[in-house]
Design a protein around this nucleic acid. Structure first.
Lengths: 208, 208
DNA sequence: CCTGCCATCAGCCGATTGGTCGATGCCGCC
DNA sequence: GGCGGCATCGACCAATCGGCTGATGGCAGG
């Protein structure tokens, strides 16, 4: 059986070298190219027609999600395996929606990575456990979690730079309660801190 | 000389009672009314024509800044003395721009409060030291601070919920540098934490 | 009546943040 | 050649934040 051809896309040379080295020392794979951003990735994928694209998200000059979207739009037959550093990315879901075949964390053991690439080449979906869990919970809750009036009130104050203690004083409740509300807000907006919550609120037009 | 007539505006009954009590026990002042939000404040000020309006910012149902704007728009002769809990409000400058005559913190000693009301009645400006300092620094920097490319880059990541450590890794710089950039961002946007910075960025259309 | 949602609160913990010094190197501009 | 803006880093410290576990009361809907 022919080798699986791989295109490596990452803005960090170190990571590219590391990946290239790993595949070089393993039978069954062949790295056919490297790209440092989304635009290069699309161009190279078009020319080299790799079986699998190993794609980092978050790159300067053409993000990963856009690149994936573009690849699927052009109908290229290659499979995209997202390989990222953090599982907390808000890009996780968009990347999968854009057409990524799998999603792995960079700290995955090498064997796991090889398995994932083989799986991707065959079109099978491979997700890291953390991502899988998030996807499941996402499906279980059919979107559009809306904030309660109280939660919105608190979020507005957060957007003004008000601290938890100040919010508590302002609303005549305890700091513990404020934190509870915030935890709920984070869960509903699928973010992990107040800054991202504010951004999400603006994106969804919950704030002017 | 006639008493100075005062209108108290605060959403907290406790605060209203406290203020009313203080003025009741002091010669030279007369509390002519109370309001619990901005709209009531404007209506009462129109009817009662007080010399001085003691105004809290941040109230449910008609914020203080809007009320001040409305009062000046209607050309009412009353002076507005802002009386608030925190000097960290992002509302500080807007309130003064809207036409507030003075700005005091609620923890000011009573004598200071009385002096401030007398001063306001005569049209003299009284600012708490902290506010005065901020105003000065504001004047020294003639506005419209724009963010550098690097700062914007960091702010974008912050809006995604990225931690300082993660930003550092992503951009190949140290965490110290990220913090330095953030400090600059806070100063330029006149906010004090990342959540407010994100909000300010959206307000000023620095982010999509 | 019971169940679920909402709002409220407590206490503990580690991680993160923001503040404040100071310092360096690069670059463009006058 | 100096000056200012920008980006970079370090170290230390207090405050804040977020996560976790668990609990209570009110109120609506089944």
């Amino acid at each position: 059986m022919a080798d699986i051809t791989v295109l490596i896309v990452d803005d960090h040379p170190v990571v590219r070298d590391g990946l290239r080295g790993m595949f070089a020392g393993t039978a069954g794979f062949r790295v056919v190219g490297e790209a440092a951003d989304g635009r290069q990735a699309v161009a190279l994928a078009e020319r080299l027609r790799p079986d699998v694209v190993l794609m980092d998200l978050r790159m300067p000059g053409g993000g990963g999600v856009e690149a994936i979207t573009e690849l699927t739009r052009r109908g290229l037959p290659c499979k995209v395996l997202v390989l990222t550093t953090y599982d907390t990315d808000t890009d996780t879901i968009p990347a999968i929606e854009a057409g990524a075949t799998g999603y792995l964390l960079k700290d995955a053991p090498r064997d796991e990575l090889f398995d994932a690439v083989r799986a991707a080449a065959e079109g099978r979906t491979v997700l890291s456990p953390a991502i899988a869990a998030r996807l499941v919970s996402r499906v279980r809750e059919p979107r559009s979690e809306s904030l309660t009036a109280r939660e919105l009130e608190i979020l507005r104050l957060v957007a003004r730079g008000t601290s938890n203690r100040e919010i508590a004083a302002e609303l005549f409740i305890s700091e513990a309660t404020v934190k509870t509300h915030l935890t709920h807000i984070y869960a509903k907006l699928d973010v992990k801190d107040r800054a991202a919550a504010v951004a999400a609120a603006y994106e969804r037009h919950l704030l002017p």
